[in-house]
């Protein structure tokens, strides 16, 4: 399932980023970073339509095959943007199980709900990095070890 989950603030700095194979964290950071351009592109391309339909899910950003560490795995990046322009990016390993669009969508919805709970925590200042145990454990539940 998900190998990397990132929450990006409106101003495009990371609020939260976690990946499962921790030794390749930087690689994932690059992947998430490069996909932000695609997110921006998608938003501006279909911005009007998105707002009208209140559709937050951006769909597949693009697949990556040149992932050197686990060559047999195909990784796909998916994007989701809230109405407040907070972006969620998920890198998904789709080599063994073909995840359906619907499942990705529901994972994003789960992530969004959890993010909302974090925002509602009075001790959290909007714009800070997220250090929440509840959020952490929710993300963990969405990730499974690759290999």
């Amino acid at each position: 399932m998900a190998v990397c989950v990132a929450v990006i603030a409106k101003e495009n700095y990371p609020l939260y980023i976690r990946s499962i194979p921790t030794e390749n964290e930087l690689k994932f950071h690059y992947m998430v970073h490069t996909s932000l351009d695609v997110v921006d592109e998608k938003i501006s391309a279909m911005g009007k339509a998105l707002v009208d339909q209140r559709e937050l899910y951006l769909g597949l950003l693009y697949p990556t095959e040149d992932y050197k560490v686990y060559p047999s795995h195909q990784l796909c990046r998916y994007g989701y943007v809230t109405n407040s322009k907070v972006k969620f990016v998920m890198v998904v390993d789709s080599s063994n199980t073909a995840l359906r669009d619907n499942e990705i969508r529901s994972m994003f919805r789960k992530l969004h709900n959890s993010y909302t709970d974090v925002m509602c925590n009075p001790f959290y200042n909007p714009g800070d990095r997220i250090h929440s145990r509840a959020f952490d454990s929710m993300v963990t539940s969405m990730m499974i070890q690759v290999c």
């Binding site: 709970d117 509602c120 925590n121 009075p122 001790f123 959290y124 250090h131 929440s132 145990r133 509840a134």
Partner: peptide
């Protein structure tokens, strides 16, 4: 306490 998580410094 819905939503609340106590930070470590409190």
């Amino acid at each position: 306490v819905d939503f609340v998580e106590l930070p470590d410094n409190h």
